[in-house]
Amino acid sequence: MSSMFQEILAFILTVSGWVLVCSTLPTDYWQVSSNDGSVITTSNFWSNLWKACVTDSTGLSNCRDFPSMLALEGYIQACRGLMIAAVCLGFFGSIFALIGMKCTKIGGTDKNKARIACFAGVNFILCGLCSLSACSLYAHRITTEFFDPMFYDQKYELGAALFIGWGGSVLCILGGGMFCFSIADSFSKSHSRGNYKYKGAARHSHISSYPRGQAVSVNHRPPPDNSNSSRVQHFDKNVYV
């Protein structure tokens, strides 16, 4: 029962993390313009993986989608690919987890369900690693430009989408690890049960049906008593006398 509860908790963690990872893609604020050193702020700049926007003091926003994928900078293309891969891995991992969990009635035998659940855990771990790498790469670019004294263009700070992505990545990795550990525990228990052999029947086969406390081995039987046969032969001789 403990492994079943562990799988349920792992499923909740992984699905929650995958939902957070998915929510980072449409989130607007991956990077936000920094107001450090500015006395009067008339507009705020922010952008994500798909567009760059500006919001003036009146609250009106003007956005511009990135015109060409091939013309984008390399780190944005890498972040896009990693986030899309994370979403796909989490989707397939959630399906495999539903099939491989012990509380469901699909997936075949327990051994096959254990393998499917372990595969789901690996998918969620890879999902978390891809999302973590994408958010970290994007944050590294922001911090490098922010602390570069020779960079005089608009500087940005970390947006809310990066923190959401980091949180979802950690949940996916923790849940996937719990899946793998629960399957390892079930395999170890089944292996230990399979190696146990009962030897009581083998020992009982070497004991004769003597009363309790006087059991004698079958291989050490007492020599046969020929007194009755001698008496019968002697009686046969006396018959003719």
Rank of each mutant, 00 (worst) to 15 (best):
I183N: 00
Q154D: 11
I207N: 10
S209I: 12
C180S: 02
V239E: 05
A161Q: 09
I183L: 06
A215N: 14
G200Y: 13
S205L: 04
N238F: 10
M178P: 00
A184F: 11
D236N: 11
R231A: 10
G165L: 08
R212A: 13
F187T: 07
H234A: 10
F235M: 10
Q154P: 06
R231V: 10
V216M: 15
G194T: 15
G177P: 02
G213M: 08
P224Q: 04
I183E: 03
F187I: 04
A160S: 14
P223A: 11
N228T: 04
Y152A: 11
F179Q: 00
I173G: 01
S208E: 07
I173K: 03
S229E: 00
L162S: 13
S190M: 08
A202N: 02
K237C: 01
I183P: 00
F235Y: 14
S208W: 14
N195L: 14
H234D: 04
S192I: 01
K237I: 01
Q233W: 05
V216S: 15
E157R: 09
G167N: 02
K189D: 04
Q233E: 00
S227R: 11
D236T: 10
V170S: 03
Q233H: 09
G167S: 07
G200K: 06
G175F: 01
Y196M: 11
D148V: 10
N226E: 09
Y198P: 03
L174Y: 01
A202W: 06
K237F: 01
R193S: 09
I173V: 12
G177M: 04
N226V: 05
F187N: 08
H191K: 15
N219K: 12
Q214L: 13
Y240N: 01
Y196W: 13
D148G: 12
A215K: 14
N219T: 13
S182K: 05
A160P: 02
M150W: 14
K237S: 05
M150F: 14
R203T: 06
D153A: 03
Y156C: 03
K199R: 02
S229I: 05
N226C: 04
N226S: 00
Y196I: 12
P149C: 15
C180F: 04
D225E: 13
S182R: 08
M150D: 12
F151L: 07
Y152I: 11
S217G: 12
F187M: 10
A201S: 08
W166E: 05
R212S: 15
R212C: 14
G194W: 13
Y196R: 12
F187Y: 00
H206S: 04
H191C: 11
R203F: 15
G168Q: 00
N226T: 04
E157P: 00
E157G: 10
H220T: 13
P149W: 09
Q214R: 15
H204M: 07
F151T: 06
H191A: 11
S186P: 01
H234F: 00
F181C: 05
G159W: 02
N226R: 11
A201W: 06
V239Q: 07
G177K: 03
A160H: 12
P211M: 13
R212T: 15
A160Q: 12
K155E: 01
C180Y: 02
S186Q: 06
K199C: 08
R203K: 06
Y240A: 09
S182F: 02
G167D: 03
S188R: 07
R231G: 07
H234P: 04
R203M: 10
P224N: 02
R212E: 15
G194N: 14
D225C: 01
Q214T: 12
G177E: 01
K197V: 14
